[in-house]
Write a protein that binds this DNA or RNA. Structure first.
Lengths: 111, 111
DNA sequence: CGTCAATATTGACATACATCGATACCAGGA
DNA sequence: TCCTGGTATCGATGTATGTCAATATTGACG
């Protein structure tokens, strides 16, 4: 029943299936890091797409390290990225955030 | 402004503070594992408290390993546990689930 | 007490991960 | 066509993590 784009009822509703647990844990691993959580938040809190160069100054980390973290967020489907000339811009994919939010929802009543 | 029980606005609302990112990443690490996600779900989906002995048969893992995972969930504030005679029972702490759910909320409109 | 069943702790091990410096790749401009 | 600046990849390294077998702890019950 669960596919990529619409996976699993809230944790508290019914025991999550093994495969779904693997899939959601993959996404959760991507956000289970202070640096990536901040990167994601910086990108998500903007109205416009975010240039990587705007993110770097906020961290005491090397450019390769930030690039590495962005790749992990991208592979988890949490952000999208695109090169525009010299710069690379990123944006949030809200559907993936929604999946996480729904996963932890506790109100058993719903649609 | 943010304390333990009510930390940080949704990621997408404003850039998360460094300390909050560390704190939330700590909790997220606890759920970023397929086994712990299933444990949490099994416990959360029940009406009554869950005996550890009821959880073991669902996994192809040793008892010490399950015990280890439960400890991590406990230390993250996701579940509570209590010994009653021979058995140890666990229950979910919904406030912590709510914090996670709220963290990923995308609708900018709210209370 | 002494035993037994349920759970926790310890120590060891292999694997995964965050980070860096060095370097490669790309696109724009002289 | 060659530089230059922004970004990605690579290789190395130290640390964290998931797992187990062995053992300790806890509490119930003879």
């Amino acid at each position: 029943m669960s596919n990529q784009s619409d996976c699993c009822a809230p944790l508290a509703r019914e025991p999550i299936a093994k495969d779904d647990a693997v899939e959601m844990a993959r996404i959760l691993k991507a956000v289970a890091d202070p640096v990536r959580l901040r990167l994601l938040s910086l990108i998500a809190a903007r109205d416009a797409d975010t240039c990587v160069c705007d993110l770097l100054p906020d961290f005491d980390l090397s450019q390769p390290t930030i690039s590495h973290h962005l790749k992990i967020l991208r592979e988890a489907g949490l952000i999208g990225s695109e090169r525009r000339g010299t710069w690379v811009y990123s944006w949030v994919i809200p559907e993936t955030l929604d999946r996480l939010s729904a996963l932890f929802a506790t109100s058993k009543a719903e649609v």
